[in-house]
Amino acid sequence: MLAVHQSRINYVLHLADNALIIGHRNSEWCGHGPVLEQDIAITNIALDLIGQARNFYQYAAELIGNNTTEDTLAYLRDEREFKNCLLAEQPNSDWAITILRQFFFSTYQYFFYQKLQYSNDVQLSAIAEKALKEVTYHLRWSSEWAIRLGDGTEDSHQRMIKAIDNLWMFTGELFLAVNYEKIGVNEGYGVDISLIKNDWMKKVTDAFEEATLALPPDDVWMQRGGKEGIHSEYLGHILAEMQYLQRAYPGAQW
């Protein structure tokens, strides 16, 4: 029973960490966007994602008890305890990589939240329903940018090809269930992610076609481990910046 409860906590933390880490990455663009309007757009998306993370963290804190709060979960856990997918933590680099990362992730979230709405866990189902409207817009925004850049100038096209080279290896993990996800499916509160892979692939294939971009071959080596706390070299740096204030001044408020 204890293990089952822990699985549910891990599952909720995994969803929260996904949203927080990619949200934080997008927030790094704040004040640095290519044009004012897109600076605001990506910051809006960052805020949406951090809002989703808060909902999941609040629920996780309730499940954990012991005076845990959304803040202790976000600011006082170490790298190995974070369960986000590797895709979420990849660096912004340039606009093409940021756009493609968001497009891959929003496509995933779009199909994922559609299924999570039917979770037998009322909290998860309610969060999914609310988040889906936001994600629908993120997907529209990011897919149009992916197409615009792919089918744009020679420079933007080359940057998108480079972005695909950089990020494709992190997309496999999105659809490979780890233990707590399998338990979630069995218990009826989790989503069977293997079932959304085809939808994801179709959406990406269609967008790439319109963007005149080639899909990588099937046999690309896929990275994994993020969901179980084995991260790329980037997460530690994100946490160092994100958690610095709460670590240096515990309980600081403003």
């Binding site: 044009v35 004012l36 309007e37 757009a41 925004w141």
Partner: peptide
Amino acid sequence: SLHATNAQMAIENARDVYTR
């Protein structure tokens, strides 16, 4: 007012800039 490359992008930018 805002900058955009076409009407569709202008509507999306307007959504992000003026309907937050």
